[in-house]
Design a protein around this nucleic acid. Sequence first.
DNA 1: ATCCGATTATTCCGCATGGAATATTTCGCG
DNA 2: CGCGAAATATTCCATGCGGAATAATCGGAT
Lengths: 202, 202
Amino acid sequence: MTPLAMSALALLNERPMHPYEMYQTLIQRSEDRIVKVRPGSLYHTVNKLEELGLVRATGTEREGNRPERTTYEITEKGNLALAERIAGVIEAPEYEFPVFPVAISQAHNLPRETVVNLLERRLQQLESRRSEIGAGLRKLGLTDLPRKYWLDVDYLRSQYDAEHRWLERVVADIRSGELDWGEAKHAAHPGATSTSETKDDE
Amino acid sequence: MTPLAMSALALLNERPMHPYEMYQTLIQRSEDRIVKVRPGSLYHTVNKLEELGLVRATGTEREGNRPERTTYEITEKGNLALAERIAGVIEAPEYEFPVFPVAISQAHNLPRETVVNLLERRLQQLESRRSEIGAGLRKLGLTDLPRKYWLDVDYLRSQYDAEHRWLERVVADIRSGELDWGEAKHAAHPGATSTSETKDDE
DNA sequence: ATCCGATTATTCCGCATGGAATATTTCGCG
DNA sequence: CGCGAAATATTCCATGCGGAATAATCGGAT
């Protein structure tokens, strides 16, 4: 079950809805900070959930002359599956192949000072993300709600902090020479004087 | 450019190869810990890189009577693009929607003790992951190489540590009551003798 | 009153990914 | 020396997701 499926099921667990209403609700609650949600995917997801018997269509109303909208409700099976999925995800950490480690593992192809600059820019960006998180929290009035309801933010902040510290440490270590950056052959670095040779004869 | 495309380009930046050789090399270097790599996707990826003019086929040899293998080399443009992509990823942090936050944001649907148990199991799993990382490092003899070449491991470890501390803190806070887990209506919890649905009580 | 644009609600298409299928060849084992 | 298993090298197909297209209606400015 994909993240979006989890969110969709969770919504139907509150009350029956039609897909577009789920979309609105997710956006309004700013859950799109945590799940990737696009209208198209949502419909697809709900369809799949129906095939799996985790939700069922209760009926199709039409208001005015707008397109028909199909309302879905969660099934007993769906309720079960949701809880099991949540439990499964929490219980067993799974690596999800973020890009940053890939890039950092190849940073040795770039020259020292370039890397230092890039890392410092990242630091700045992280700072502003951090403050956005805080601002968003307050804007949503989440700070009034018990912590139970924003554990995810709490978690993400701790991850953010760790990355922040790591970046600062690495930058310092490169600067100080503690982390040696033996300049070998590099890949071309952006901004290098490149003899632009473009061959596209296919 | 997807992570796999980055890895492929990086390999071709070392020397020309045919896709299967890239596959072998990635596996042998255990880069599949960091990039998701499946033979199928690799061929597809290389094709796309060719269309984009970032790599070019140098020729097709055949050894014995095995299927023909097409060797590729990186182009000037490819070299440039690789460096730019690496720089771009490092420079600008991008959220990649991991599942754990989604699950944790819905954990309030599960009963207190269940959650505590799940979090504790996760802690254990993380422990063993951690030791595996260390073991893998030593097995590959990476510890001899300068730190420059295993910055990714370094980073991942710091992330791991942060999560570890977060989990311990949260578990402690739930246990102590510091983090209140007001037991409201729950979704069915796995292993519960669930009877009817939870529709009407708010 | 009317026209423009945003909102409502959904469908459709393309593309990247993963898994399986294919076909040949070498290797291990008795 | 011969049989099956693993390795070599690649293609093919089902699937899920994101972005764009569609189509009707509502709100707001002139």
